[in-house]
Amino acid sequence: MNNLDPRPGVIDRRLDAVERLVAVSGGKGGIGKSVVSAGLALVLARQGLRVGLLDLDLTGPCGHLILGIDTSFPEESFGLIPPLAHGIRFMSISCFTGAEAAPLRGADVSNAIIELLTIVQWGRLDYLIIDMPPGLGDALLDAVRLLRRSEFLIVSTASRVVVQTVQRTLRLLDMVQVPVAGIVENMQRDGYAADPDIRALARDRGLPFWGSLPFDACLEPAVGDPEALACTAFAQALGKMVRSHLLAARD
């Protein structure tokens, strides 16, 4: 017998009591996946739902910065208990590294993700939001392989450069038969209609277009302050989308 990795066998058990897993992706960096992930978690938590946020960006984690969460070692109890902050159970590599760099190659990224999924005890959650790193590499493939009940929320911006990467992401998800909950346009500029290319992407694939989130100058000053974040036009628009597309189905 070859050496067997004991970790993948328990990942499903860790997520048994999680109702929905929503992975926020889009392929490109800098399109606002992390702020959409954090915003989603915040909006859902403020609706009184049990929410977790897993930051899978191991080399550039920032969920803790956006939500103003102190990073410290999680409590140990038959695994690691994600700390509860602002009503959100939160886990990130930054809980172990703080602001230090984690220079990881592909296989290391994969191993670290498997380790986290093995040892983190999420408990009962209505939603686990997973902030995916950029790219179609190890993290995305591991999320697809190991988080078998996950659905993806795809973030795009009105840039041809981004849209083509989003298109590739959608092709991959289609290939591996992972459901897509919807597509959202981020950083929509004042006075512009929803980007026709993004709408077309959704329409051609029969996917729900959640709508457009504004480029909001108030967002950066609100980073680290969940109360201020929740009052931004960005969070208000995201809240509407969540009520129409996630919670409506739930009700």
Binding site: F96, T97, A101, P103, L104, D108, N111, L116
Partner: peptide, 13 residues
């Protein structure tokens, strides 16, 4: 302790 939880953090420390 960090490496104990996630051995890949050896690359950090």
């Amino acid at each position: 302790e960090a490496i104990h939880f996630v051995p890949e953090l050896a690359h950090t420390y």
